[in-house]
């Protein structure tokens, strides 16, 4: 699983960072980006989904691994 933040949509509500600081970092203006290449370490999938479900701008995308 991978996470991605769409910089066009992100308005810096910081919900993703609050819920999953392991996966999302904020820049100096409070806008978010996925940490590293966005790969979600095993065990953090739930947190990734929670972050996506709480972004008011629908800026967090989840890319599931192909089966």
């Amino acid at each position: 699983m991978k996470v991605r933040v769409d910089p066009e949509r992100c308005e810096g509500h910081s919900r993703c960072h609050a819920l999953a600081p392991e996966l999302f970092a904020l820049d100096d203006f409070g806008n978010a980006a996925a940490i590293g290449d966005g790969a979600v370490p095993p065990g953090l999938e739930e947190k990734a989904r929670l972050a996506a479900a709480n972004c008011p701008e629908y800026a967090v995308e989840i890319v599931e691994d192909a089966e």
Partner: peptide, 15 residues
């Protein structure tokens, strides 16, 4: 509540 995309702080550019 697990899914909560509330707009208490506004939505869009004026967040």
């Amino acid at each position: 509540r697990q899914e909560n995309r509330h707009g208490a702080f506004g939505l869009g550019i004026h967040r």
